[in-house]
Structures are given as structure tokens and as C-alpha cells.
Design a protein around this nucleic acid. Structure first.
Lengths: 158, 158
DNA sequence: ATAAACCTTAGAGTTAAATCTAAGGTCAAG
DNA sequence: CTTGACCTTAGATTTAACTCTAAGGTTTAT
């Protein structure tokens, strides 16, 4: 039997987290000591590891609750059910990745459009792009800082 | 001048959101009507569009607050400062993408390992992977449901 | 016997960005 | 003159997953 701090350390979580999981029905210690300390069995520890593995692949705690209840009652569930959950989650994750990729591309464009030098930001392409509804379309840019020699290889398209 | 609902509709946000932005110092209407209604100028509307564009590339509201204050005081900032913000955000977004890709790969492996059929989940590879510290290593799998003919092309590695 | 390290509880706080509620005032149309 | 759509405010709620606080009890080592 492990006390809360022992199990926490072993699984690299905080004792707080174990209390939190208990409050939310994910994991309860199978015993209490005479003085009321939580005592976790090896089975409890395994359940915790299940939870942590499921977290590591991206499931939320409420999804994990569902997975745990399926796991305890496997014979009443089909593979299709379990795979369905994974596939929904996968679609979910792919959607978030797509959104972030959109951010990434836009940010990269902004970054590429700006010289990043010590010049005043008065003509900064990034700020200009945010000010007007303009799409940054290129990769290299030199500001017009009133100098006579520069190359402008960047086009803004409204 | 636009009333709150008009500007909200025009920019496809809720009036609540505009009040929220005001409370948090991002956007205040330049006037109030005699009866206390918020009245937004075209300049206010432009500021809102700036905010929404910055949001669309992934900046948080507090980052946008910073961008707005730079934008209003450009001459005291360098391109490097602005590009720096974008690059930090970009790194940030790339980190999140990497994390989600990790999830995606793990989920894909789990999904591929499971037949997804109507069979009982008693021998489901997904649940087995979550139960034990096993890595799913392959793409195709048929369960051993006690049948005599099947192919197991999936290996689990402990 | 006392200090340090551990444990208990209930409940509040954190983060981000809204969203909602209640109770009421304003305005234009019919 | 009343109905309905709009507006006002302050403040509570939402979501997820913790994290922290306060006030106190237990264990272990010296």
C-alpha cells in the first residue's frame, strides 16, 4: 500500500492531483489507514497509470472516465465503441492541428515580411498588415526608411 | 457612429464581446449617446478589426493589448520588437503543434491496432495498450477471438 | 519531546475569453 | 400607449485541470 505522497512521487504527479482525481471519480484509494490516510493498492496504481497513459495520448479526464468504465465492463462493449472514441479524438486533434497550422502560416508570413531590424516600426509590415485588411504575400522585405538604396521584394495584396 | 449591436453584427462578434474588450482595455467607444448608449466611430471600428486580425493569427488578448500600444506609439519601437513578438508566438504555436502531433501519432497507432468490429472489447488492443505499458507498433490487426483463422500483423512492444 | 515531513478537510483561486443573468432604461413603429 | 428590439450595469457562470490556502492531526527520527 502506498500513501498518497508515495504514489504521487512514483507516478510523477502531485498529491493534489490524486485528491482531485478522487473528487472527480477517477481514482479512489481502496483503503484508509486508522488515522484516515489514503492507502492505494497496486491495482489502484495500475488504474492511475491507465489514466496517465490515456492523458498522454490526449484524452480529457471525462473521456478517461468513460474509458475506465468501458475497461471495467469490457464484455458489454464492442471494439467499434472503443475505436470510435479514439477516432473521434483523432479527428478532434487533427482539427486543432489544422487551426494551429493556419496560425503558423499566417505568423510565418508576417515574420518573413518584416526586416526585424533596429529601424523604427513606423513602416513595419507586420503592423501594416494588422492595420489594414491586407495579406502578406512574400518572404523578403526591406523597409522604405527614406534611404535611397534598398530592395523591396515584398508585395502586399489588399 | 455605430451602436454596440451594429458594430458587433458588422464584425461578427457579440455585443458582450465588445463590452468585455472595453472592460479589459482593448477597445472603448469614443462616445456615449445622451442616454448612455455606446457609440463607436469608424476609428474604433478599425481598432476592433486590428484586434480581430491579431486574434485570427493566434495572439491572445493580452498580447494584442501590447500590439495595440506599440501600434499607437510606433516611432518608439523597432521592427525587431514587433518581429520578436511574432516569432515568439510562432515558436509557441509550433510547440503546441508538436504536442498535438504527438497525440495524433499515438492515437493513430491505437486506432490502427484495433479492428473496430462488433466483437467484444475483451481483447481490444486499445484497452490493452492503456492497461499495460505497451507501445502499439503496427498498422493492422485482427483480434484473437478464439477463431482459427486470422492474421495478426500487429506487434505490441512492452 | 520536539521538529520535520507527512497527512486530513473544505473551499477558494488560477487561466482565457467570453457568455449569461437580472433588473431595468430607451427608442421606433403601429 | 404599448410592444418589441435594443441598450445599460454589476456580477455570476462556464470550461479544464489542477493548484493553493488555512487550520489542524500523524508519523518518524533524533
Amino acid at each position: 500500500m502506498y500513501r498518497i505522497g508515495e504514489l504521487a512521487k512514483q507516478c510523477e504527479v502531485k498529491a493534489d492531483t490524486l485528491r482531485f482525481y478522487e473528487k472527480h471519480g477517477l481514482l479512489s484509494p481502496s483503503m484508509r489507514s486508522d488515522s484516515g490516510y489514503r492507502l492505494y493498492s497496486e491495482q489502484d496504481a495500475e488504474r492511475l497509470r491507465f489514466i496517465l497513459r490515456a492523458k498522454a495520448v490526449g484524452f480529457t479526464l471525462s473521456e478517461i472516465t468513460e474509458l475506465l468504465s468501458i475497461d471495467l465492463d469490457k464484455s458489454n462493449w464492442a471494439c467499434a465503441d472503443v475505436k470510435g472514441m479514439v477516432d473521434i479524438k483523432l479527428a478532434n486533434v487533427e482539427e486543432k492541428i489544422a487551426e494551429l497550422n493556419h496560425f503558423r502560416v499566417s505568423l510565418q508570413r508576417l515574420s518573413d515580411a518584416c526586416c526585424g531590424g533596429p529601424e523604427s516600426a513606423e513602416h513595419c509590415s507586420i503592423l501594416e498588415a494588422l492595420e489594414s485588411n491586407v495579406e502578406v504575400k512574400c518572404e523578403n522585405h526591406s523597409h522604405d526608411h527614406g534611404e535611397t538604396e534598398y530592395k523591396t521584394s515584398c508585395k502586399l495584396k489588399g
